[in-house]
């Protein structure tokens, strides 16, 4: 009950941020060089056709009026029509959103599965060879540009070993999954590095804490101390970092989708920007903002599950 109220409160807090984001992106798009009517007509500009399209799209109305229309349509799920695809923006985004979310999800799973054991190992084996190797690996991960890592993986696993598809999305779910492995690894690469370093430092800090000594003096087994005390407490700061990295992955997906030819909203956004398809740009940006806000709410929730000291509904500093 309490957590339900908290969830509701957090969702209500999202609304003003989302509204401002919608206003900002709407205004920004009005400053674009050339309007969508020009983009549709291309080079052959017939003044009458131009005026007709402007009238039809409501571009002659004042900016507040245009916004009111846009916003009421948006509330009904209508984001306008793409000038390039000549299709509803919501339909375009709907199918592509699944791709982007799956990509971010699989990259998150890779990140957790790889960084958790390695970060823990490095922390426990501090200053031993295993720690040194893992830290060098993390440093390389941190320094390598994602698009370069993507191309390397593509060359090794796609072109040379022919293990995984080089590009495209496939038609069935098993094919989608295979198509997501390389881009998922690419996207996870730098997050793995960041998280390994973070978990390592947290494990070292927590190991020195008094309550771990206390647990030992109570005669708890090593396993109980590692999982119940060290790991749990070491993970609390990591959760926040992971959520920041997931939001970072949404940024990364824009580039990764382009390298691997995945039909996601990142790739759609870049196409729309190049083609001045601004209803689509607006739609993509708004969907990205919604995903970020949802990730934030989920993080708060996980945080409270891991750390009982944090009271749900309490005011944050």
């Amino acid at each position: 009950m309490k957590s339900l109220r908290y969830l509701l409160k957090r969702i209500l807090q999202m609304i003003p941020v989302l509204f401002v984001a919608v206003v900002v992106i709407f205004l920004l798009m009005r400053f674009l060089p050339g309007d969508s009517a020009l983009a549709t007509l291309g080079d052959k500009i017939d003044p009458r056709a131009y005026e007709a399209i402007k009238e039809e799209r409501g571009l002659n109305a004042s900016i507040p009026e245009q916004f009111a229309i846009y916003f009421s349509n948006l509330l009904q799920g209508d984001m306008g029509t793409s000038v390039i695809y000549n299709e509803k923006v919501s339909a375009l985004i709907g199918t592509r959103m699944v791709t982007t979310i799956c990509l971010a999800l699989i990259a998150t799973i890779f990140t957790v599965l790889i960084s958790l054991p390695l970060g823990y190992l490095a922390g426990v084996k501090r200053d031993k060879p295993a720690d040194a190797v893992i830290r060098v690996f993390a440093l390389i991960g941190l320094s390598s540009p994602a698009f370069w890592v993507g191309l390397l993986l593509l060359i090794v696993f796609g072109v040379q070993l022919k293990l995984l598809p080089v590009s495209g999305w496939g038609r069935s779910w098993p094919a989608h999954f295979r198509a997501l492995i390389l881009p998922g690894m690419t996207l996870a690469f730098s997050s793995i590095a960041v998280l390994i370093r973070n978990i390592r430092n947290n494990v070292i800090d927590v190991q020195e804490a008094d309550y771990v000594d206390f647990g030992r003096s109570k005669g708890l087994s090593n396993w109980a101390i590692s999982t119940g005390y060290v790991l749990r407490n070491a993970l609390i700061p990591t959760v926040t970092l992971l959520s920041l990295r997931i939001i970072g992955m949404l940024s990364g997906s824009v580039i990764i989708e382009n390298i691997f030819g995945l039909p996601g909203i990142g790739a759609l956004l870049v196409q729309a920007v190049t083609g001045r398809d601004y209803a689509v740009v607006q739609g993509c940006v708004i969907v990205f903002v919604i995903i970020v806000l949802v990730v934030n709410v989920i993080t708060d929730f996980l945080y409270s599950v891991l750390d009982h000291r944090i009271q749900l509904g309490g005011d944050e500093a």
Binding site: M29, S251, V254, I255, V273, C284, V285, V292, L293
Partner: peptide
């Protein structure tokens, strides 16, 4: 920070 930074950067470059 509600915008993924790359998305905001692209929107700005678009303008």
């Amino acid at each position: 920070v509600a915008f993924p930074f790359m998305v905001l950067a692209i929107a700005i470059v678009a303008i």
